[in-house]
């Protein structure tokens, strides 16, 4: 297959998947995103629509650029020296790379959960109240208490920690720490939550708990999850994007990607031929 026909096929796939979701409103729209780490190009012309209040999974082999793309959406790549992002990404129609945009505000709208649970070495309460405090979301202690309580409840952690809110968050188990990090992200009331392999450091039971939680959160948030586990993508997501070597190969409804992929590379990957 030559390059031209390949890209033609890709475009066809893309437009097909867009047709599929025409009813849903796109929350994040990326157009021709190219990312460079110094001389090395990590992403090539990625264009994608993320549907509101649904879970989109990014899958692909290691080093395929899925995490890099995820980190473009809240501009965490800004913190990496030598990283250049070209192209446009918009959130509700606002260009997030526009000079007038405030990164701090963007990150309050687009929360993030990392691969390894990273609670601050502070109490559980302070971990959750950190975001609301710096953004001034609460007027007074009672309001802050309410935000902390509701965030922990939505993260499914409240029952386990309500009696020890003043103990350090680092003392929790790995799965609890990750739910604490989710609660911490929710507390700022973001519109989008980015999850970068949130279960890769957890055991199967804790993973199941987080997956359930992701399914519940879908009602209120737009969730994008990067995962290495194809089963996880199949379980939690409505739409799946397959990345390979910095190219967005295929995007579509999760069911279609896993049962009837249109690209040969996707097929090879999900059947375990590589990656």
């Amino acid at each position: 297959m030559n390059d031209a026909s390949m890209s033609a096929e890709m475009t066809a796939n893309l437009s097909k998947s867009l047709d599929f979701d025409q009813a849903a409103k796109p929350k994040v729209v990326a157009k021709d995103v190219n990312v460079f780490y110094g001389e090395k190009q990590a992403l090539f012309d990625v264009s994608i629509d993320i549907v509101e209040k649904s879970v989109t999974a990014f899958i692909g082999p290691s080093g395929c650029g899925k995490s890099t793309f995820l980190r473009c959406i809240n501009r965490m790549n800004d913190t990496i020296e030598g990283c250049v992002v070209k192209g446009g990404i918009s959130l509700d129609g606002d260009d997030i790379y526009a000079p007038s945009l405030d990164v701090v505000e963007l990150r309050a709208r687009v929360g993030m959960v990392f691969q390894k649970p990273n609670p601050f070495p502070k109490s559980i309460y302070e971990n959750v109240s950190y975001g609301p405090r710096i953004h001034g979301l609460a007027r007074g202690k009672t309001e802050l208490d309410e935000i902390v309580e509701s965030s922990l409840k939505r993260a499914g952690l409240w029952e386990e920690v309500k009696d020890r809110l003043n103990e350090p968050g680092t003392g929790l188990s790995g799965g609890q720490q990750q739910r604490l990090c989710i609660a911490r992200a929710i507390a700022v009331s973001p519109e989008v939550i980015l999850m970068d392999e949130p279960c890769s450091a957890l055991d199967p039971i804790a993973t199941a708990r987080i997956e359930e939680l992701i399914d519940e959160l879908r009602a209120n948030f737009t969730i994008i999850i990067v995962t290495h586990s194809m089963q996880q993508a199949a379980r939690v997501s409505q739409r799946t994007a397959f990345f390979h070597l910095g190219i967005l190969v295929e995007l579509g409804a999760t069911e279609q990607i896993f049962t009837n992929p249109s690209d040969k590379r996707t097929q090879d990957y999900i059947t375990g031929r590589f990656g």
Partner: peptide
């Protein structure tokens, strides 16, 4: 750890 800083920046802290 870098993850501490990333965690805080990702919450929108300066």
């Amino acid at each position: 750890p870098r993850s501490m800083r990333d965690g805080s920046l990702a919450l929108g802290a300066t």
